[in-house]
């Protein structure tokens, strides 16, 4: 059939578009990271090397491993706390009846659109006053707050799929609400809960503005800030290092995206599509 053929051609073109559009910049990043010089395109001489990788892992004055450690720790802690706090609120909204529920849900939705720049000036002053500049705490607390709307919406959509009768059975057996959440609801929704944690991890791992304002050096600075502020000795940007650092730092989130794409897509869209 003619139309089937048009569709086949369009689909093939579409798949090619997705591949080129999404992967070409990554290929460029990897190519530069393995080259002796970033200008290999005009030099015509690629010069394969793993020196960039070895250097950023070995040279201590570049502090890349410090940035990575800070990023992983901060994001991990934030993801877990945010998921737990979000789970409590999501449980209440999906299970209990109380006045003002709609207002709470809509407020949380509105909070997810908060511009970070509108709080960062105040946070900087506040964190300076309590001596938290350049500490993990300076990032962890604002990150938890700013990722809570995402945690809340994702978990609420998972929880509301579980029939309330399951709670009632546990309550009859003498469990209180908190025990019901921890022993009954969380185990049932465990895959959803874990994917929420992964998405929250990505959220914090990628954050830039707060980390830029609230940290000053390698003791707390995270990967995005480290990569944004990478400077060469003589003014020229050390592109090989930047791309090698970028490639290594992308690995955790790339793995999450590839292995959990189904859950991430579900988690992100539940709220949007329900009508």
């Amino acid at each position: 059939m003619k139309e089937e053929r048009i569709k086949r051609i369009l689909l093939t073109l579409g798949i090619l578009f997705v591949i080129v559009f999404c992967l070409l910049p990554f290929a460029w990043m990897v190519a530069v990271s393995f080259s002796e010089t970033p200008d290999f395109l005009i030099r015509g001489n690629y010069g394969f090397t793993i020196k960039n990788y070895l250097d950023i892992l070995r040279l201590e004055n570049l502090h890349f491993l410090d940035y990575l450690k800070n990023s992983l720790l901060v994001s991990g802690i934030v993801a877990i706390f945010s998921a737990l706090i979000g789970a409590l609120a999501a449980y209440a909204v999906s299970r209990l009846s109380f006045p003002g529920k709609v207002v709470i849900v809509l407020s949380v939705l509105a909070l997810s659109m908060f511009p970070q720049i509108s709080v960062v000036g105040y946070l900087y002053k506040f964190m300076s006053n309590i001596g938290w500049i350049n500490t993990y705490n300076a990032m962890i607390f604002p990150y938890v707050a700013f990722s809570l709307p995402l945690a809340f919406w994702m978990l609420m959509s998972y929880f509301s799929q579980i029939p309330k009768e399951i709670d009632d059975a546990a309550l009859v057996d003498g469990a209180n609400r908190f025990q019901t959440l921890v022993r009954v609801i969380l185990p049932i929704t465990l895959p959803g809960f874990l994917s929420a944690i992964l998405l929250l991890f990505m959220f914090s791992f990628n954050e830039f503005l707060f980390a830029l304002m609230l940290t000053t050096d390698f003791r707390a600075r995270t990967v995005p800030v480290g990569i944004a502020l990478f400077q060469g000795l003589h003014g020229e940007l050390p592109w090989g290092y930047i791309m090698a650092a970028s490639a290594i730092s992308s690995i955790p989130v790339i793995l999450i995206a590839l292995f959990f794409q189904r859950r991430i897509i579900q988690g992100l869209t539940r709220g949007a599509v329900k009508q």
């Binding site: 910049p25 460029w28 990043m29 830039f208 995005p224 944004a228 992308s250 790339i254 897509i265």
Partner: peptide
Amino acid sequence: MRGTALLPWAIPSVIGARIWQL
């Protein structure tokens, strides 16, 4: 493919920005 399509959004925006800058 769906996982691949997520990648530009999944990596830190700063890394994407550095790639494009170059």
